[in-house]
Every structure is written in structure tokens, then in C-alpha cells.
Design a protein around this nucleic acid. Structure first.
Lengths: 239, 239
DNA sequence: TGAATAGTGTCTCTCAGACACTATTAG
DNA sequence: CTAATAGTGTCTGAGAGACACTATTCA
């Protein structure tokens, strides 16, 4: 046993943070949850929610805690997965900070409640990003998160995590169209998703919200939406 | 500016390491590069190569350095990508260690030269893992790395990074068969890979290594093998 | 010569994309 | 009625899987 090998003073001081890319579909647009920084550096600039991990705290636990502290939001029904880790030596101007980014997908949620280090919190459509950009390297993290979400819709049932508990095929299609920024043929989409085993579970009920002929209501299927459940995948047009 | 916010003493001591899952195809098997630990904890146990990052050192740079220090191997022609980050509070018995894992794919390389913290280094077929298992949570990291590699062969040209600079279609097919542990129809495989634009670049030369009729030699295509280049993907049978 | 691998052609079945058509609601 | 959305059927073309067949080498 050579404890000195592990003496933290032998190694350069490093802080570990978690940052979150929280995506939802709101007001017919893909939106991301941002906070306004209440501290230096980048005081007043928009940023992804996040913060330092605590002693003995696992990474996904820290991610959920920071999200709730800074925005009041909990990803109960949603989906949380690790995105990537960003550790460029100069990404934070004060000290070495390695940030583990998480991606969360959630249905439309109540308005966020700013708290902690956040001066404000709110949703911003992903397509309409502010000119100044986000603090730190959060523009890149957000871009990676959006691309991951787009890719995952192709071969998983994760699109349903953007929908309320019960939803119609048309609502699910709208999610795909907004996230991918395409238009999909309603008939072919209907045939594909209703024909995929384990993806959707009919409730027997119908709804006429959205107008027109009553639509069947579905729940997300039993298959784990995080792992592959669309095989062959539902491909984005024009790629 | 509030520098005290960033005083490292305000935050629990955390060390950041990089660990590597280095995969190659050797002796007709998918093999992983392992070291034998020369220090506590897990003294004498096999482990993935890796170690602490240095001040001012970017994460992929640290990964390459640790690989070279512990095994003498450089992933020149190969491929290096971030895999995931492992930060469970008790994953290292001495202190909080957050490890950023990298996945490297490389053609058959010279025998490793142990160095640094490694008492020994060598290749082990992935299918024939030791009963005791690897140090720390490296079994799980290795499993995640192998699964990532398997998935990436489906929709990228990364299989070619396991091959020498010039290779035949049969050699490329053998890579798929070994990584996926399946058998593929040689004729259909040939049609698929030679018919995919930008995947393979003919050299004009032929070879008779492997016996039989001379085979065309190819180089990896111009398309970035890390991003999608097989569309539609080459699917693993029976999934 | 036979065994081995390389490479081409052909058939069938599945499925994505395009789109005609019917069904059921609101206004 | 019209407008809107839901849902079904039908055709076509691309491509995967199965496999017959030819080509070219080594032993």
C-alpha cells in the first residue's frame, strides 16, 4: 500500500462539474433549458444548468440535484443519459474544470424556478440561439446534445419521452418533425410506428384534441426506450 | 470576480484519470490491451491502461500519453474516441476518482512494452476473459467499449482501422465476423462494401495472401470513418 | 486434379416512399 | 357543406439475404 500515490496534493487541482442539456418540445418547437449566470465568470450570460459534484455523490445524482437546485425541475418521467465529458485545460478561466455533460429529454414541463447560482431560468428554442452564445464551451455541448437526441430518435422509442403520458400518432410525428426539422408523410409514419412491435401500447381511448377525426391514444411501449427498439431504424430523410 | 468560489479547497478532492479500451484484431480474434498492475490497489490484477491527467493537459492527449508510457504503443493509424466517464464514489478504494474512458481501435501492433505503473502488458482475446476479472470497474468499461465498437461497425467504415493499410474485402469481412462473432455471406458482403460510395478505394494491386484467386487490394476510403458512411447500415444478423 | 478464395449474377421478400382513397370529427 | 386530421390500401423501386455459377490461384 502506497497511500502517497493517491495524495491529492501530488496531482494538479481539478474540479469536476456536471452540466445538463435538457430538451423538451414546447410551443411547437424543440427548446433547451438555460439559466442566466449569477456569478463570474460569464456573469449574466446564458449557460446550461450545472455545477460542482459533492463528496460521495454519484454523477447522475449530482446532475439531478443541480437541475433541481438551479431550475426547480425534476426529470421524473423523462430520460437522463450521459452525453460526453469536456476537459480542455482552458475551458474555465479560473482553474482546471472537467465537466461531465448529461442529456435529458422531457415532456413539456412547468416554468422553471431559478435558484442557486442561477439568476434566471427559462426555455429557449434551439433554432433561435442568442448571438452572443452561451458561457464556457456550452455552445458545443448543446450542439452535441441536440445531435445525440436527433440520432437517437432514429433507432429508439425516445421520441415518446417528449410527449405526455398518453399521446396520438400525430403528436408523436410532430415531435420527429420538430426535432429533425423535416416533414414526414403522415400515412407512412403511422404505418411504421404502429407496425413496430413493442413501441406503442394502445390505451383504447381516443381524443379529438388537434381537430379532425378522433385519434387513438397510445402509451410508450414496454420496450426500454433507451436501447434500440426500431429495427430497421426510422431514417431521417435526405441524409 | 469572486476567486474564492473557485478555491479548490472549497470542493471535495477529486482526481481525474483516463483509461483506455484498446482493441485490435490479432491471431484471428478480437483482443484488448491489458496491463498488470504494479501498485496497490489491485496489485497484480489485470487492468486497462490509464492514469492521472496532468496540469494543462487535454484529455485525449493524456490518453495517448498514458498508453505510450504503460505499453509503448502509439495509435498512429488507429482511431481514438471518448467512450464514457465513470465516477461512482467508491470505484477507487482510496479517494474519489473520476475516470474518462477512451476507446481506441488499431491494426495489429507490435508487442507492448510495459512501463510506468504497469508490471506487464499484453493482448488478451475479449472472449476469453480471466475469471478474477479486471481491477476497479474495468470489466464494465471494457464491456461498454466492446459494445460501442460492435455498434459502430454497423454504420461507419471503422472496421478498416483494424486492417493494415492495404487490405482485401475478405480481410475486412473477417474483421466483422470476429468483432460481431457471426458468419457473413462473402458474396453479399462484397457487393455491399464495394457498392458503398467513399468506403473503399481500390489500389489496383492484388494479393494472393490467404490463398485462392488473387484479391483486389483496397485502402480505407476518403470518407471520415468516425462519422456515418454506411447508409443504410450493415446490420448485425439476428438482432 | 481438387481445394480454396474472389467475384458476378439472379431471384425473392421486405420495406420505405409516394400517393389514392375512405373515415370521422368541428364549424 | 368544407376543412382538417386519422387511418388503410396499393404500387414501385432499392436493397438484403440466399445461393448458382464462373475465375484464378496453390498444392
Amino acid at each position: 500500500v502506497t497511500p502517497t500515490t493517491y495524495d491529492p496534493r501530488d496531482y494538479p487541482p481539478v474540479a469536476v462539474t456536471v452540466d445538463l442539456v435538457v430538451l423538451t418540445v414546447r410551443d411547437d418547437a424543440l427548446q433547451v433549458l438555460l439559466v442566466r449566470r449569477g456569478e463570474e465568470p460569464f456573469l449574466g450570460r446564458p449557460a446550461l444548468p450545472g455545477g460542482f459534484i459533492r463528496a460521495g455523490e454519484d454523477l447522475p445524482v449530482a446532475a439531478r440535484r443541480e437541475l433541481t437546485e438551479e431550475t426547480g425541475i425534476r426529470v421524473r418521467a423523462g430520460h437522463l443519459e450521459q452525453l460526453a465529458t469536456y476537459g480542455a485545460p482552458d475551458r474555465d478561466p479560473r482553474m482546471r474544470v472537467v465537466s461531465v455533460a448529461y442529456l435529458a429529454l422531457a415532456p413539456d414541463l412547468p416554468a422553471p424556478e431559478p435558484g442557486g447560482d442561477a439568476a434566471a431560468a427559462g426555455w429557449l428554442p434551439v433554432g433561435r440561439r442568442t448571438a452572443g452564445g452561451l458561457a464556457f464551451d456550452h455552445d458545443r455541448i448543446l450542439g452535441d446534445g441536440v445531435e445525440r437526441a436527433r440520432a437517437k430518435l432514429e433507432y429508439t422509442g425516445l421520441a415518446a419521452t417528449f410527449c405526455p403520458e398518453e399521446f396520438t400518432v400525430g403528436e408523436l410525428r410532430r415531435v420527429y418533425e420538430l426535432v429533425w426539422d423535416v416533414t414526414l408523410d403522415p400515412r407512412n409514419f403511422h404505418r411504421k410506428v404502429t407496425g413496430t412491435e413493442g413501441l406503442l401500447e394502445p390505451t383504447g381511448r381516443t381524443t379529438t384534441r388537434g381537430g379532425g377525426r378522433p385519434a387513438q391514444l397510445y402509451r410508450a411501449g414496454t420496450a426500454d426506450p433507451a436501447t434500440a427498439s426500431l429495427s430497421p431504424p426510422l431514417l431521417r430523410p435526405g441524409r
